[in-house]
Design a protein around this nucleic acid. Structure first.
Lengths: 213, 213
DNA sequence: CGCCAAGTGTCAGTGGCTGTCATTAGTCTC
DNA sequence: GAGACTAATGACAGCCACTGACACTTGGCG
């Protein structure tokens, strides 16, 4: 896709248009609401026809999740790079915490980080977006399961453990998301801390009974 | 909503229309494809205006997930009824297996069980439906988390363990769904067995390393 | 410069979904 | 059992997301 040795005026313009559409969309969505923003409005703001918008993004959902897509890819790469000595859950845990450290650099090149965080919250609170996000997370989970299976030298289609381990991890991450999305603090640091805390609580949550009495 | 001592011609007709729309929709969706079926077509088959369809169901997604809704409610009730001695994961496990035994009775009153199972597969293989389904599952998870928290006398908003436990359980169920959806066997019994097997694999999947070498 | 192809705008159309309003058809009362 | 009340429906108009087709502009390149 992106030829390295070829900036070219054409490619440059394309990237500019795409970035402008993406940023404008997130800005309008987060400020005046997802449903209350039409594609015409986004395209109009960027001085582009509606048709052009759809040539860059498949629809409103995709443009909203475009940045999440970068983050997900970032995370998957981090998992891939984890040393093979680490146990699966350990590797995923380290990968997610590590990728949160450099998330700003990757995201910031396209949209302001603050706008990204607002978009995250929008997704959590908009039913159709949340649905799309969960489906995408499910796909990412499948991808990670294959990576984990390969690390461990297992066949993902016969041994349930890789998928189960990933599903458990994903479940915990989802709980974190929900809590962060409904909480008051919007910072990325808060998310990091919540992630660690919830993953630590995994053991305690699975040991049978919790009642003290 | 449903007054017990009042069948009434009106209510009767309403139920009939609703059931007809539901069944026709599933039939058309599963036979000729979800996207390739228009609301006009469904309404036309039932000899009802498009507008009436939308008075019964919010849209194509909702009508497809309507039966799942019954199943979910069934499961939630089963969890609620589990004896308090059982540990959370144990209770959820028993509830899901138990509710699968009586699912036919509940579902069969509205649509043929075989049609329901085909609908399940349709959901797994249709992106937009899968997304909606995952979101709904997430909501059910939240509900179950509150039930579990109450059982254990905990505050779901301060103690992460109920939500984490439910998320883990939901993750395992999702893996089961995926496997069942892509497998050859469409039977409900197969699903039951897969569920039990995956839940049993939970412990093994979480114990660090799996490699033999 | 001039050709080719990529990128864009315009237009027409489909389909999901909603608001409105007049009409039909159970239901309830006397 | 006739008439009043109200819930359910149909018909219509309209919005918006999204797509296909075609003509036009513009960057890339010999």
């Amino acid at each position: 896709m992106d030829t390295v040795i070829r900036p070219g005026l054409r490619e440059l313009k394309k990237r500019r248009t795409r970035d402008a559409l993406l940023r404008t969309a997130l800005e309008l969505f987060t400020s005046q609401g997802y449903e209350r923003t039409t594609v015409d409005e986004i395209a109009g703001t960027v001085d582009v026809s509606q048709r052009t918008f759809f040539r860059y993004f498949a629809g409103k959902e995709e443009v909203t999740l475009a940045v999440q897509e970068m983050v997900a890819a970032h995370f998957v790469e981090a998992v891939r790079r984890r040393p093979p000595e680490e146990a699966p859950l350990e590797a995923m845990r380290n990968a997610v915490l590590e990728s949160w450290d450099t998330i700003g650099d990757a995201v910031g090149r396209v949209v302001p980080v603050e706008l990204y965080l607002r978009a995250c919250r929008l997704i959590q609170s908009t039913p159709s977006l949340l649905a799309a996000h969960l489906r995408r997370s499910d796909e990412v989970g499948e991808e990670v399961a294959r990576i984990v299976a390969e690390r461990e030298g297992l066949d993902v289609d016969t041994d349930p453990r890789p998928r189960v381990a990933v599903a458990v991890f994903a479940g915990v991450m989802r709980v974190t998301e929900r809590l962060w999305g409904s909480g008051r603090d919007i910072g990325a640091d808060t998310f990091r801390e919540l992630t660690a805390a919830h993953l630590d609580a995994l053991g305690a949550a699975l040991t049978g009974r919790w009642r003290t009495g």
